[in-house]
Write a protein that binds this DNA or RNA. Sequence first.
DNA 1: CAAATAGTGTCTCTAAGACAATATCAC
DNA 2: GTGATATTGTCTTAGAGACACTATTTG
Lengths: 271, 271
Amino acid sequence: MQSEKDFLQQYNISDYERPSLTADVASFMIRSQQLDNYRQNAGSRLSLLLIRRGGYPFKDYWALPGGFLQPDETIEQCAAREITEETNVAPVSLMPVGIFSEQGRDPRGWIISAAYVSVFPEGDVRQQAGDDAADARWFDVRFQQTSGKDYVLTLSCGEISVGAVLEEEKKDFGIASFRIKENRSIAFDHAKIIAAALTVLRRRAKNFEVIFDFLPPKFTLSQLQRVQETIMDISVLPANFRRKISDYVIETDEYDRGAGHRPARLYQRRP
Amino acid sequence: MQSEKDFLQQYNISDYERPSLTADVASFMIRSQQLDNYRQNAGSRLSLLLIRRGGYPFKDYWALPGGFLQPDETIEQCAAREITEETNVAPVSLMPVGIFSEQGRDPRGWIISAAYVSVFPEGDVRQQAGDDAADARWFDVRFQQTSGKDYVLTLSCGEISVGAVLEEEKKDFGIASFRIKENRSIAFDHAKIIAAALTVLRRRAKNFEVIFDFLPPKFTLSQLQRVQETIMDISVLPANFRRKISDYVIETDEYDRGAGHRPARLYQRRP
DNA sequence: CAAATAGTGTCTCTAAGACAATATCAC
DNA sequence: GTGATATTGTCTTAGAGACACTATTTG
């Protein structure tokens, strides 16, 4: 009779055909820009990290950072490692988006991608933007529904502008899936992954799950509101935002002075 | 200068070490049992399909159905194929649970699992229960929080009872992750996957996303309510359930007669 | 003082939970 | 008729959105 030990000694895993597995990460950050009016609070934009591919395939296209899973790590560790290698900063949160396994999605062969969203607080990554690899850039994100099930994704960084037109295929359980109708300079099926990542990000921003990760530990409620508004592309009344967020924050004794208006109290996230 | 074509010809994907990828599926069904009292509606239990492992590793343990991804299919197609092979019925819905990639989770080597929840309407699978493979059985599910972050999972089928004690590790974005503290006859890390699957199922049942999939196309509102109550282990007032569900259903002209009480109107899901 | 944001109070409307009351059938 | 579920209506309370109003700062 065969024992478990015997079985495992005879078992050769390389008898079966296997795929390569990568983790691709959509990293988001909020970037503020000072406005002309000294009184006004800074405007802000949602931005996404892309890297320009130096080699084939999709040479000179823009892609999400990512890389192959190694035997000594989990897929989440792989995602965190890849994004840290690119930015030198560990992301503060990592959310699963989905598995992309369609045939032909990578011309190199049978390569499957697990996609994640990661978030960085403003400032942590600022100095890094575009120096090291010189091919990693933060792109301003625009993702808008046009008509029916069609969406337009536009990513811009200075004069560089890439993007795609996508159609929502199904939305079975709050999980949207997209089909690429047109594609401008985005590598692989990454336009699809970015659209899915944005859907995940927006859903999580709606119920205050992820907005804190875009800010430093202490923040004003206006900043927090601005994060939510920027991600979701909506605007809400300050009074109502304050009431809804009040359960999730703790007030401190510090204030954000020096603006051209009444100082704002700083808050912390309630654990 | 190298062209993309040249690059792809030289590229050999087998230069890199690769994992095996499997899809494991937690299939749920509601089973009714007639009560003694002829007037009373049937009681119901949530049940989960497990198969007894005939070979090593984990011989004689109970496991989720699943199998290796093939090159010509997506991971969702693989999950659907595996569960259809087991039940002879195509599942009506398939929801992602997560990727399980911890080292040592499978003694055969580097094997990563993508987990899914699938749902069957009552009746479709009834005749199948335990005849074909004779090692596939539907287990009644009990999953209860005991103290703090501890949960007890109990799966029972006649005299067979398996289960586990789990601790909730993190709940970062509504996505719960568990650690196995004790394990009774559940193969691999499948206790962990089942706990995560139940968390997903309960969240989706809360907002009426998945409850329809447990029933035939036409159903009474009481049946629908019973599905939600059974999955979430709660009880709600019929009047309130009716009001909340009304936007999601369309009434038909048919009635469910023959019970020992007033006939109930049949409804359909609103598309 | 003017302009901007910070912060509080209140009104209305909707949704949810609790509960009362009526309807209808099989035995 | 009795006992069960089916179905409708109403009361109360909590929360969301809209809006009015006050407070505080810098140039």
